[in-house]
Amino acid sequence: MGKLSGKTALVTGGSRGIGKGIALRLAADGALVAVHYGSNEAAAKETVEEITAAGGQAFAIGAELGIPGDAAALWAAFDAGLAQYGGRPGLDILVNNAGISLWGKVGEVTEADFERVFAINVKAPFFIVQQGLERLRDGGRIVNVSSGVTRIAFPAITAYSMTKGALNTFTLTLAQDLGARGITVNAVAPGIIDTDMNSWLDDPEARADAESYSVFNRVGTAGDVADVVSFVASDDARWVTGQYLDATGGSYLGK
């Protein structure tokens, strides 16, 4: 029996990258995992197949984020997918992982791009939580995937960094709000992670530079982050809430 046996989890953006790593780990811990995707249905189905091949339980749900009605569409897809799977109604673990990056210093970002990154990275998680509270069981878990750029200044991604700062504040205030229900809310902040979204790491010089950020002299993996999420999603972290867990491999500690 895994430590999350009998639990149901939803991972937004769970088809690729960090989200896939989280979905795989929560399923390995025994949870039934709803793998959300925004547009890449094939990737989500591959993740589900990988989970089931390993003896886990999962199903895929699709909903585009960053558009009007996105939270309602996501929850409708979740309810339908869970019912079709035969799972017990409700949710125990919500991982707000879905997000997009946005490169550009303050003088380079367009208003349209600014609004889009906030719509997906901030507005969507806010209303997903708001509309999911009636489904989230007492004693549940909310995990928001933040970023090390809220601690380390990277002017080239200013607007993106702001969205993750907003998630940190959301984490803090939501933890206070939901504590009476025994629900914990924590933020996990990755550093540079080796995923297909960071294809620039294929450049040996760029990779060496990225590796130098961490005290361990390597870039992180999706599994490195997923293991931290697994902890805060479990009963082991029942006394931890409202926290920012730095999962950057000690990036820039001495600078």
Rank of each mutant, 00 (worst) to 15 (best):
K7M: 08
W75Y: 05
K123A: 14
K164A: 00
F231D: 13
I142V: 09
Y213Q: 12
K255M: 12
G223P: 05
A112H: 12
G148F: 04
N96W: 09
G90F: 00
G13N: 08
G13H: 12
S146R: 00
E115H: 09
G62Y: 09
T158S: 12
G242W: 00
V35P: 07
T12H: 06
E134W: 08
G139Q: 01
T169V: 12
F216S: 05
A76W: 11
M1W: 06
G21A: 06
Q131E: 14
I51P: 04
Q57W: 00
D209K: 13
L94V: 13
F126M: 07
G223N: 06
A247Q: 05
G87A: 02
A119N: 15
I157H: 05
V229L: 01
T195W: 10
D224T: 02
T184I: 09
G62H: 10
T169L: 10
S199P: 01
R218I: 02
G66A: 05
R135M: 04
G13Y: 05
I61H: 05
I128R: 03
N198T: 14
V225T: 14
D209L: 14
A189K: 07
D235H: 07
D113P: 06
N198V: 07
I193K: 05
I22L: 08
L10M: 14
D194G: 12
S39Q: 14
R25E: 15
T52D: 00
I183H: 00
S230D: 13
G182C: 01
A119K: 11
V229Q: 03
N198C: 04
L102C: 03
K164H: 04
A153F: 10
V35H: 03
F118T: 09
L178W: 03
A119E: 14
E64C: 11
A80V: 11
S212I: 02
Q176I: 08
D196W: 01
Y160S: 10
G249A: 05
R207C: 13
A63M: 13
G249W: 03
I93K: 01
A63T: 15
A54F: 07
G104V: 12
L4G: 02
K20S: 10
R151G: 02
T171D: 08
G66H: 06
G139M: 04
G90Y: 01
T47Q: 06
D177E: 15
M162C: 13
E46W: 02
L74V: 12
W239N: 15
T195P: 11
E108D: 13
A27Y: 03
V185Y: 09
G99N: 13
F118S: 05
D203N: 13
E49M: 03
I157L: 08
D92M: 02
N198S: 08
S15M: 03
T163H: 06
A208F: 04
Q243H: 08
G249M: 05
L178A: 03
L174I: 10
S214R: 03
G14V: 06
D70I: 07
G182T: 04
L26Q: 04
G99A: 15
A80P: 07
I100E: 06
D92N: 11
V225G: 13
E46M: 00
L32P: 05
N96F: 01
G13K: 07
G139A: 04
V11I: 12
P125G: 09
P190W: 14
Y160A: 04
K105F: 09
E41S: 11
D224N: 03
D209E: 09
A80T: 10
G139K: 01
I152C: 04
I157T: 09
G81Y: 09
D194Y: 02
